[in-house]
Structures are given as structure tokens and as C-alpha cells.
């Protein structure tokens, strides 16, 4: 029996209606994301150098071969791992700690929630600029004023290579910890109180209650946060771009920045495309692994 002729006409009418509603958005996404993706793959096989257009031509896997021997690429890859890993860990740990703290405050939670929303709604590029111009400059930046007042001296937060990496990680953590804080706070507040009362009656102390009850119950929320924050950290761009531009030198040049600089500063779009392909592959791999892990958990 053929499936389509098996279906009642009414069912077919509903499917047609559903398709009419879904297709416009689908077409926009297909043309706007999927076609460009293949175009990107194709472009990564070419030499496209806008500063030296006469050299353009089909290059095969040359760009990828070049990448393997490119220390700047390996540097950017390492920075991406450090940046993504540390920001995600900080966001979750600090967010969890703050949420547990704030949950015990009887009043003023609303004000805190509003304060937490501020960084989230700001444009990352504005955040990067803010930190660069108001928080981190030596001598009159907010942070320098604090460290000087505490007798820790003045530092060139964005000029020193190691401090610059710490700084961009801090900026990202500052902007997005409120997100994990809010999500964890919401899921903590939604936990049934009787479980905790029962645990209390069972004479579990605060630490044990946290380890054996709270943590397992909010694990789904934390899994969601980790997945989402990893995705966002992997595509982070504007805040670093505004704060350091990837510098000093290549000290904060994560893969995103390197692909951008190669394409639009050095105008070497072919090699930039190959870098972008690697970035996409990593992102897809990570998201795939994350969803597998989450399903397994």
C-alpha cells in the first residue's frame, strides 16, 4: 500500500497547510545558512587573496596543509581551548556559588536580578569597549584604582600578554556569569522544599544536603548551561575584538579572531575560509559530543 495514497484527504490538507507555514522560514535558513556553508567549504579550496588578486586560483587542500605547519593557528587553537574551558568553568562555579548565596537573602533578590540582567543585555562589543576604556586602563581605570588602593600596584592589564588573556577571560566571565546565576537561581527556587525538610529531619548537614540533594536535582540545568555557554564561548568575538583586537601580538587571538584577521585584515579570504571550516568543525563536534553526553546522563 502506498503511504501517500493511504492518508486521508484531511490529513493531507493539514500537511499542506503546515508546509505553507514552515517553508518561507525554511527557505530563508537554507539559503542563508546551508548554501553559504557549502560555499565556505568550496572557498577554502581556493587561493583568494584580495591584496594580491593575481595569485587567485584553485588550491586544493593547500590551505589546510599550510594550516598544519602554521604556529599561529596552533596558538589560536590552544587559546580557544583555554578561553572556552576557563570561561565556562568560571561561569558555572561562580554562578552556582552566587545563586546559593542569594537564595538565602530574604529581601532584595529582585534588585539583584535586575543588576544581573544588565551585563546580559549589553552588546559584547560595548562591554569590550567599556572594560578597555573605563575598567582596565592603567592609572585611572576602575580596576587599577582598586588594586592601587589595596596596595597591589598598577598593572598594564591589556598590554601585558599574560594579563591580557586573563583580562579577556574576566570580561567574558563578567558578562555571562549573570546568565548561569539566573538560570541556577530559577532552578533552585523551583526545587520542592519538602525534600530539603525531609533531609533535614534525616539529619543531613548543609554540605551533605548540597552534595546529595541540591546538586543532583539541578544537574539538568547545569548541563544546559554548560552546553550553551560552550557554544557562545566558541563563537565569542566582539568583546575580545573591542578590548584587545587579539593582541598584544597574538596573546588573545582565539581561532575566531585569527580567522577574522586573516580574512579581513590580511584579506587572505581563502586561508580565512579554511580556518573558518576548522572552527565550524570544532563547534559541531563539541555540540555533538555535548548532546550525546547530555542524553547519556
Amino acid at each position: 500500500m502506498a503511504r501517500s495514497s493511504d492518508r486521508p484527504t484531511r490529513e493531507r490538507r493539514e500537511r499542506r497547510f503546515a508546509l505553507v507555514l514552515f517553508l518561507p522560514a525554511f527557505l530563508v535558513l537554507a539559503i542563508g545558512t546551508t548554501v553559504p556553508l557549502f560555499y565556505l567549504l568550496w572557498a577554502s579550496l581556493w587561493r583568494i587573496d584580495l591584496s594580491m588578486p593575481w595569485l587567485s586560483g584553485f588550491a586544493g587542500l593547500e590551505n589546510y596543509a599550510k594550516m598544519a605547519a602554521d604556529p599561529r593557528f596552533w596558538n589560536s587553537l590552544g587559546l580557544t581551548v583555554i578561553y572556552t574551558g576557563s570561561t565556562v568553568v568560571f561561569q558555572v562555579v561562580i554562578g552556582l556559588g552566587l545563586a546559593l548565596l542569594v537564595l538565602r537573602i530574604p529581601r532584595g533578590q529582585a534588585a539583584l536580578r535586575i543588576a544581573a540582567i544588565m551585563p546580559i543585555v549589553l552588546a559584547p562589543v560595548v562591554v569590550g569597549m567599556f572594560w578597555r576604556t573605563l575598567v582596565l586602563p592603567p592609572d585611572y581605570g576602575l580596576l587599577d584604582l582598586v588594586t592601587q588602593a589595596l596596595g597591589l600596584g598598577s598593572h598594564n592589564w591589556l598590554g601585558d600578554p599574560q594579563l591580557a588573556l586573563v583580562s579577556v577571560i574576566t570580561i567574558h566571565t563578567w558578562q555571562w556569569t549573570p546568565f548561569s546565576f539566573l538560570v541556577i537561581l530559577a532552578s533552585l527556587a523551583a526545587l520542592p522544599p519538602d525534600v530539603f525538610e525531609a533531609a533535614r529531619i534525616d539529619r543531613a548537614n548543609a554540605w551533605r544536603r548540597f552534595i546529595h540533594i541540591t546538586l543532583p536535582m539541578i544537574r539538568p540545568a547545569i548541563a544546559i548551561i554548560v552546553i550553551m555557554r560552550m557554544m557562545v564561548a566558541l563563537s565569542a568575538f566582539a568583546a575580545i575584538f573591542a578590548a584587545t583586537g587579539g593582541g598584544p601580538g597574538t596573546a588573545t587571538e582565539i581561532l575566531n579572531l585569527y580567522a577574522y584577521r586573516t580574512s579581513f585584515t590580511d584579506l587572505n579570504l581563502g586561508y580565512g575560509a579554511a580556518l573558518a571550516v576548522v572552527l565550524l568543525a570544532i563547534t559541531l563536534l563539541v555540540s555533538f559530543l555535548m548532546f550525546r553526553l547530555r542524553r547519556a546522563a
Binding site: 535558513l29 545558512t33 546551508t34 553559504p36 556553508l37 560555499y39 565556505l40 572557498a43 583568494i48 557554544m231 566558541l234 563563537s235 568575538f237 575566531n256 580567522a259 577574522y260 580574512s263 579581513f264 579570504l269 580565512g272 575560509a273 573558518a276 571550516v277 572552527l279 565550524l280 563547534t283 559541531l284 555540540s287
Partner: peptide, 16 residues
């Protein structure tokens, strides 16, 4: 499509 990093797509967008 939501998970694609923008830097990955900017090159084809620019070229097109």
C-alpha cells in the same frame, strides 16, 4: 543552524 558560529559564515556572506 542556530549553532553555527558567525565567524564561520562571514566569509561566504561577504563574498556573496
Amino acid at each position: 543552524t542556530q549553532m553555527l558560529p558567525p565567524v564561520g559564515l562571514i566569509i561566504p556572506y561577504f563574498l556573496v
